[in-house]
Write a protein that binds this DNA or RNA. Structure first.
Lengths: 338, 338
DNA sequence: AAAAACAACGCAAACGTTTGATTAATTTTG
DNA sequence: CAAAATTAATCAAACGTTTGCGTTGTTTTT
């Protein structure tokens, strides 16, 4: 029942010419005469000829495929980012394959391996939380598979990456709160091991110092990002001798837990909260954060994809420099609470 | 600089045996002796041999790849679903490639074409809003590429699909509201052209009839699902001679608009709202819907993927019957508003 | 009129792997 | 001990496309 796909050979047989001529004809090769070329193209069209991609890929050693490895596709940030990546890829006629590390280092290693076996032309990676070794990526160098990291990037510069500066974002956030008159600002930070935590803390300190205030370490508390952890952090602030009037939350989930808890304690109006935008509808909350750091996932995905495609198309010799792209993040101020 | 990948040929040359023996040795073919087999495997391992996937795919005419076409990856529902699909695929050693139709019919047609060219082994599709013709999928039959639709499915049974019964879900929702004592229940439905709208309306009517109430068509209003459209629909209810005390919203976005509007008018407490769960954190709202229809995107993705893999592995002869799988949806009741 | 240039196409190899058919060597069987 | 069966490996073709090189004729140049 199934019609065997039409091949170049088949077309050649029918036209009584050689397969090579058919191939050349379809590609507008100059050494094929105009009449023959048209005959070839017409027949190909009428037979619904479709090039066998697998054969081409095999022959050329290129797959026109880029791989994406990220922690969790269902996280809003990543779903936007990969959506952008696909949009860019399809413009350049590339295909996207992806896989999730589920924030597991071993899984990530396996996936890199798998992507290499799939012979992707390039790889986009947002590393898992558990990743602190990076050998699995270095392997790819010898196979000439370029890698661009995005958002969750390794803590060194000799790789290509696209990311937000959480440091400058945090500066903006803290500055905003200071300008609103707050003098004691708490920060619920993530685990100390995370690079993202460092950046936030650094930004916090810079903003404080820049405004000639004195930095109080006890106002920056680490947190495991769970609801319970958030509550404990909140309690520290509530009992603080200089009780903060504003809080910078590590992300929207933390902000959510925090708001819930403060509402339960009926102290929600004592605080201005600033968060980092992971969730689309957080602004619909009644007591939503007064401002949010927008990290532009679509833009990040877009840039990362374009850089990767650039690298794929540039000859090896030109690959000395590293793309270290910082996407500026913005502080989005929500409508004023009435 | 780049080390040419090790091939079977290379191994054969070193070991002074034929490539076919190497291939068979690596696959534990019985006609290769134990000693030779081990020698082959050892050398392969020590040389870091990786099979050239492109070559295998080409040779076998199988790609071990399944394609996914969906409207918008950034929609929460789909990001969960595809996340499940990938999880299932990777278990069976398949790779996922995907593309977004952006709810555009022409784009969808192109993508189906592209997937066919990529020679995917099977295709999972959630159709775009604009799709009312389905020829582009029938083509795939002749190429023996199975298709499983999920969530957004065509309105006929002679295809494989996995979906929620929005009808029964709506029955549950309306029943719940009736049991709570509501006697006038409004429904903000989607555009009349959508199959999903039909199902909702059908469920609504069934529940009403089943409870021996009389169906008032003016209580079911169509809506373009925008904020403005929602407001207009809401106005109809507010001015209705039998002003409803409960409203079934087409989805969480509509619910969100509705809640916002009702809060502005200060009538939010006059209504119980039920919605369909698209958004994760809607329950964090102060005036969140009293209940939500959970459509289990992860489960749907999982089932769809498994059905597709089944179809891929079953010989053509066995493909008479169609998988029509209904995932039961549940009504999730939120904590009582205090 | 011979030499050079060109146009239009065919030949054949190559990409890496798999697999049906064969062969050669060894072992088992009646 | 010859015939049959088993074991272990090889050969060669095949998958579809691309591409360097070679081969024809035909046309242009000197």
């Amino acid at each position: 029942m199934q019609s065997k796909p039409i091949t170049i050979k088949e077309i050649a047989r029918i036209l009584n010419i050689s397969p090579s001529s058919v191939s050349r004809g379809l590609h507008d090769h100059p050494s094929i005469g105009a009449v023959t070329r048209e005959k070839i193209k017409q027949l190909a069209k009428s037979l619904n000829y479709e090039p066998n991609n697998a054969a081409i890929l095999f022959q050329k050693g290129k797959t026109y495929t880029i791989g994406v490895i990220l922690p969790e596709l269902s996280e809003h940030f990543f779903s936007i980012a990969i959506s952008a990546i696909e949009d860019e890829a399809i413009k350049k006629n590339y295909t996207v394959i992806f896989a999730q590390s589920h924030d597991n280092y071993e899984q990530e290693v396996k996936l890199v391996e798998k992507m290499k076996n799939q012979r992707v032309d390039g790889l986009l990676v947002s590393i898992s939380k558990g990743t602190s070794k990076f050998d699995h990526f270095e392997k790819l160098n010898s196979f000439n598979i370029p890698v661009v990291f995005f958002d969750r990037i390794p803590p060194f510069k000799n790789v290509h990456y696209v990311a937000c500066s959480l440091e400058s974002a945090t500066i903006k956030a803290v500055n905003y709160l200071l300008k609103k008159g707050h003098r004691s600002i708490g920060m619920i930070n993530g685990p100390g091991t995370l690079y993202a935590s460092e950046e936030r803390k650094e930004g916090y300190m810079q903003a404080i110092n820049f405004n000639r205030l004195k930095f109080d370490p006890s106002l920056v508390v680490n947190c495991d990002l769970t609801e319970q952890g958030t509550i404990e952090a909140a309690d520290q602030f509530l009992n603080h001798k200089r009780k903060p009037t504003a809080i910078v939350a590590f992300n929207d989930y933390v902000a959510l837990f925090l708001i819930k808890y403060f509402k339960k304690l009926n102290v929600i109006n004592d605080f201005d909260i600033v968060s980092y935008a992971n969730l689309p509808i957080i602004s619909y909350l009644d007591n939503s954060p007064v401002a949010s750091v927008e990290q532009y996932p679509y833009l990040q995905g877009q840039k990362a994809a374009n850089i990767l495609l650039d690298l794929i198309h540039s000859p090896n010799s030109e690959k000395q420099a590293y793309y270290n792209t910082i996407v500026e993040s913005d502080l989005i101020v929500n409508e004023v609470k009435e």
